[in-house]
Design a protein around this nucleic acid. Structure first.
Lengths: 373, 373
DNA sequence: TTGAAAGCGGTACCAG
DNA sequence: CTGGTACCGCTTTCAA
């Protein structure tokens, strides 16, 4: 299965010498028919098979090392039990990892097969096609990839009874868990403004993985500052749908502004940025997330700057490591749903009539004050 | 699958609205046969189809949102292009993440489809069965799960042309990249001994994910110390195959010993351990990996202990964050093969005659000295 | 150049 | 209770 395009010319691997045993082989060895084999191995309730026959079949299957062919089964059944999620493309923190594990465990208990599909570098359309080929019963799309309404439709027509998205904007036709990236920027900037900072830098990772959410977070920070500077001004953050709805609760301030700061996830890049820090005239920085924040804060301290006196630093994602740094890192916490919760959601969506497409969320986002701001 | 709305009318049903379009549907809409559809959509070189027909077919497919059924295709083809790897079960650092991405990208360029199968909590046998059902053309097994020779055989008989393991011991029949967990313990302990430490603690995570490698690392440390105490003694570390081969190059020392230290990946657990540190009488600690090391070192410093004067701390995995701590964290670096390299290995193994099963490695393991030891 | 038909492996009807 | 058999969607001969 699964090669959809033509680029490589896979020379067909020769027919497998150690032949794969089929249910027919098991039937032959056990001296019964294929139907009986199927009944026995699936514990079919509708028919009653004598115990001696069962034993013969089981033993034959064991002896041959028989494993049913998932593709054949799902072809016949007309549907799979596959829940597909795109594989993570960047580092996965302990929090996210625990979430994924919980989700998988819960889904497995419900009888689903969890498959993470490596979708690196694929566009929404390409990924949709690749996923649809597997005919998953549900798709949980959390990550870089954003699905269009057409994509969702394609997946549903390919048999997906539930498409759940976690992203900045709800997608028509899909169950949406809205995690507003811009809102994270809003919260971070608002926090810095509340603590008296005015000239705010926003780290924008140069890596391509975080790029989209980085832009949204930057826009969120911008809108928060705009809001603060002139509360009457329209607060639409331009980019990713409805954010800033509960924007900064900060009095009018003047002279505030946001400066984007491109930076790579390397010590060198952080040091380079820190070296020209004084010339930037910034008294606060939102560093995209805790990892970049850690890197930058280290570089700033090495440069002789005081945190938070000279510059306040805030990250996002509330990683454990932020509490291990000195000063402890302030952060923006995103309240993820638990894996169990999401699994139940998936299951409900699968069993439900296919027309419904609820919208959940948005997910709560809050600033956590520690020592670095 | 049973829709409650309509009684089944097998022969001439009204077009069911939420039906998955098949190649027959495309053929009907385009006014051609299914064979022609297949030829066009797969750019079959063996037959020449007129351009107008091609256009009609393409347009019909587009209009219906047709996506080929991977299961049907692979059933017919007799093999897939799936490369299966178990999904990571713990946090994934930037290094490992970059490795996975590189591997996936390279494999995709070679025409493979990378699928990470969530195998949480499955035993080797269970995982093998689940994987074999998908009939992957190759399995790359890097993680908690260790395969038996039987498992490898099952996978191969299920059509896997290559099974590649990365683990402490080579598996018969599989291509093995031996990363000797015990060797990591050996290197860490040897490093501490070289720096004059004698009473060595070894952190053993209580989490189930790291448990197996934790035991091996502990055993490695033990064997290194045994070696140092009485160089004549047999150096076999008992547990996971051939380690300690290039064991500690340290003169005989006396009074050396190893103490296992259970610890969870939480601040509380680290603090608790640090609180009773002085009573343990240890002057060096190998903290399983950099993350646990970071946690423990923080707790030790907060407890008023000096690093490395009072206690030397060494981690493993050479995470970037180790260089950001003060003092900078010494570590054991494992030289992973690059993703490109591994991808090439997979491809070669797939094309090769299925009998071959080379053994690669072992992978280089070296201690990196920084400030914490 | 295109169409008809034979399966791939497994399941679920029917008749025996 | 068990065997025969008609599919599921797709590729690929072989004929027309």
């Amino acid at each position: 299965m699964s090669q959809s395009s033509k680029p490589p010319k896979p020379s067909t691997p020769a027919p497998t010498p150690p032949s794969v045993p089929t249910s027919a082989d098991v039937a032959r060895l056990a001296g019964v028919s294929r139907a009986t084999v199927s009944y026995v191995l699936n514990d079919a309730a509708a028919v009653r098979i004598s115990e001696p026959t069962r034993r013969k079949v089981r033993q034959a299957a064991e002896e041959l090392g028989y494993v049913p062919h998932a593709a054949a089964r799902s072809l016949r059944a007309g549907h799979t039990r596959i829940v597909l999620l795109p594989a993570p493309e960047g580092p996965v923190g302990p929090l996210h990892s625990a979430f994924l594990n919980q989700l998988q465990r819960a889904l497995r208990r419900l009888g689903y097969t969890v498959v993470q599909y490596g979708s690196l570098g694929l566009s929404g359309d390409e990924a949709t096609r690749a996923w649809a080929e597997l005919r998953p019963v549900a798709v949980v799309c959390l990550g870089r990839i954003t699905l269009s309404a057409r994509n969702v439709d394609t997946l549903k027509r390919a048999g997906a009874r539930a498409v759940i998205t976690m992203g900045p904007a709800p997608v028509p036709g899909a169950h949406a868990l809205v995690t507003d990236q811009a809102e994270i920027g809003v919260r971070a900037a608002a926090h810095l403004l509340e603590r008296g900072r005015r000239r705010i830098g926003v780290v924008v990772p140069v890596e391509e993985g975080p790029a989209p959410s980085a832009r949204s977070r930057l826009e969120g920070a911008r809108s928060a500052v705009r809001c603060a500077v002139s509360p009457a001004a329209p607060s639409a953050p331009s980019a990713d749908g409805p954010s800033g709805a509960a924007a900064a609760d900060v009095g009018t301030v003047s002279g505030a502004g946001v400066v984007p700061l491109p930076m790579a996830y390397t010590e060198e890049s952080a040091a380079e940025l820190a070296a020209r820090w004084r010339s930037l005239g910034l008294d606060g920085v939102f560093a995209y997330n805790d990892e970049y924040a850690m890197l930058l804060m280290r570089a700033l301290l090495d440069e002789g700057l005081r945190v938070p006196e000279d510059v306040a630093v805030i990250g996002a994602d509330d990683l454990l490591l932020g509490r291990l740094l000195r000063p402890r890192l302030s952060t923006v916490r995103i309240a993820m749903p638990t894996g169990d919760h999401l699994a139940e959601l998936v299951d409900r969506a699968v069993r439900e009539s296919p027309g419904t497409a609820d919208r959940y969320g948005p997910v709560a986002v809050t600033a956590v004050h520690r020592e670095s701001t």
